[in-house]
Structure formats: structure tokens, C-alpha cells
Design a protein around this nucleic acid. Structure first.
Ligand SMILES: [Mn+2]
Ligand SMILES: [Mn+2]
Ligand SMILES: [Zn+2]
Ligand SMILES: [Zn+2]
Lengths: 148, 148
DNA sequence: TTCCATAATGAGAGTGATTATCATTCCTTC
DNA sequence: GAAGGAATGATAATCACTCTCATTATGGAA
């Protein structure tokens, strides 16, 4: 199991660029995030990797974010969700259930990406922004909540 | 200054549906949010409407959210941003500055909305979601941060 | 291999946004 | 103009998250 060795190498290099080491705890964090098809909350991370003390988990996830390995997105509730940066997981968007709050990954279609790429630059330009990235959230009812 | 009377009426009706009153403090909240071209943090709301006690502001903004008058979006930092629900402010998206964290509203183009409407349903279907709403965030550098 | 500088660790305290309490006050309705 | 329920606001509590600091682990230099 686990990420491909080349990905670990790339992460190690990325960390080294800011004089950070790729320690065992950081590998545990990366593996935990990589194993999930959806972004995880910190309580979920702490439960999945029970050897991780809270303070170390927060400190290391911050280090990984600063190195560009992890990104934090904002969940429907107040607290944050963590996932691998798109460079290591691929570009994708999120489905959010309006009823239960579940968030999961969804692969974008070429068609959507093409449309976004053009329209997005135009919108940003209109307000003087240099847009470098887009994020799309789709809200709706998940299969479970639709059934209910 | 102030929303159109018809909007206030609509908000009053919406609140009444859940046995909530449209009080002076709630009107202050609505006016404050309506006067802004961007979603506001709670500290910003409290500063703009200094007569609002913190506990009342949180309680009332929650009441307005439950009534569908206000929505809370998650800012780039951990805390929430509040704005009028799209029913009362119109559909729009957000520009987020990757450097300073500023968030502002941006009107969507017809072209973008058309592309999203089609592609989004397809993506949701693929994972069994009934998608009812989409949110787009454009990340980039704001004019101020581009200049620096 | 040994030493050293520095990064990483982890328990605990602290911060700040948000939420719960509850006695008091305000509205609505009869 | 009461009565009942909703709203208010000061206060305390909660919870995600950050900071502190003494200890430990790491990796390169000698
Ligand atoms: Mn994701
Ligand atoms: Mn907005
Ligand atoms: Zn659901
Ligand atoms: Zn900026």
C-alpha cells in the first residue's frame, strides 16, 4: 500500500527546498491523506493515525501546507479539511452534501475545465485579478440523503 | 441606504415561516450585509454595526441562516464569512486573493453559467448526487498584491 | 565513528471564534 | 393591559487551532 516511491521522493525534495525533513510522522500524514477519496478533518486524521499527537499533527500539516504538499480547504462547517495538493493528487473538484455535510472528490470533465479556463480569466481580468486557480463546489444531496 | 422595502418584506415573510420575528437587530444585520460588495467576517460585522452585542449578532445571524436569508461561506482562513443568500443578492461567485486573503464578489458571465449548468449535472450524476447549486472560487492576486 | 547544529517532537498552556446559559426585556395576541 | 413566547445580552463554556519549551532525533562535518 501507499504512494508510489516517486511521489514520496518528490515530496521529500519539496520539503528539502525549505529545509524541512520528511520524517516518519509526516509520511504517516501523507499516507493517511493519500488513502482517502475525500478531504479529512483533523479529528479524522487523528483517529486514522492514532500514533499522531495533536500538536505534532497540526504542526506537521502546517509544514506540509507551506511546502505545497498538502492543501487546506474550508469545509461546510467551521473547521478545515485537509488533502494532498493537486500536484500530487491531480486536479479535481468537490461534491458537498447539503444535508449531511459530506465532502468527496469528483474528477472534472475536460469540457468543464475548458469552459472554466476561458471564462475565469475574463472574470478575473474585469476586477484586476490575475487568476491562477479555480475551485468548484457542487452542492446537492448525496445518495444516502437522497434515499432518506 | 437600505434594501428595497419589497426585499425587507420578503425577508420578513421568510422569517415568519419559522416563527421568527424580523426585529430591529436583524434588520441591522441584513442592511450591513447588503451594503457590502463582499462577504464579511463577524468582527467586521460587529465593527460596522457597533450597537450589536456579540452574542446577539451570532444568534441572529444563525437565525437568518436557518431562515435562508443569509449564507455562511468559509473564508481562506478558518473563520466564516457572511453574506445575503443568493435569493436576495443574486447569483455570484468569489475572487480570493492568494496573497492577502481578500474575498470579493464577482458577477458570473452567461457563458460560464451555461457551461457549468450542463457539466455540473453530469459530474454529480456520476456519483449519485442531485446537484442543486454550484460555487466557484477564483484564486489569484488582487490588484494591490499584484502591484507589490 | 563521534560531535554538533538544527530540526522535530509532544505535553501543556493559551488564543480567538463560536455556542450555550439564563435572567431580563420586548412583542404579539387576546 | 395582562400572558406567553420570542429576543436580548452579559457571561461562561466549548472547540479548533496555535504557541511554548524542554527533550529527542537527525544528518552532516570533523
Ligand atoms: Mn479533494
Ligand atoms: Mn458573495
Ligand atoms: Zn448526505
Ligand atoms: Zn491581495
Amino acid at each position: 500500500m501507499g504512494l508510489s516511491p516517486s511521489l514520496h521522493d518528490a515530496i521529500r525534495v519539496r520539503l528539502a527546498e525549505s529545509d524541512q525533513r520528511y520524517t516518519r510522522l509526516r509520511r504517516v500524514l501523507v499516507e493517511t491523506l493519500a488513502a482517502s477519496a475525500r478531504p479529512l478533518t483533523m479529528p479524522e486524521i487523528l483517529e486514522a493515525a492514532s500514533e499522531l499527537p495533536q500538536s505534532s499533527a497540526y504542526r506537521n500539516v502546517t509544514a506540509l501546507i507551506e511546502a505545497g504538499v498538502v492543501r487546506r480547504i474550508a469545509g461546510p462547517e467551521d473547521h478545515g479539511l485537509f488533502e494532498l495538493a493537486e500536484e500530487f493528487s491531480g486536479h479535481h473538484h468537490h461534491l458537498v452534501c447539503a444535508a449531511c455535510g459530506k465532502v468527496e472528490d469528483v474528477a472534472p470533465s475536460d469540457r468543464l475545465e475548458r469552459a472554466l479556463g476561458e471564462a475565469v480569466r475574463a472574470l478575473g481580468d474585469a476586477q484586476g485579478y490575475q487568476v491562477t486557480e479555480h475551485r468548484v463546489e457542487l452542492l446537492g444531496l448525496c445518495p444516502d440523503c437522497t434515499a432518506t
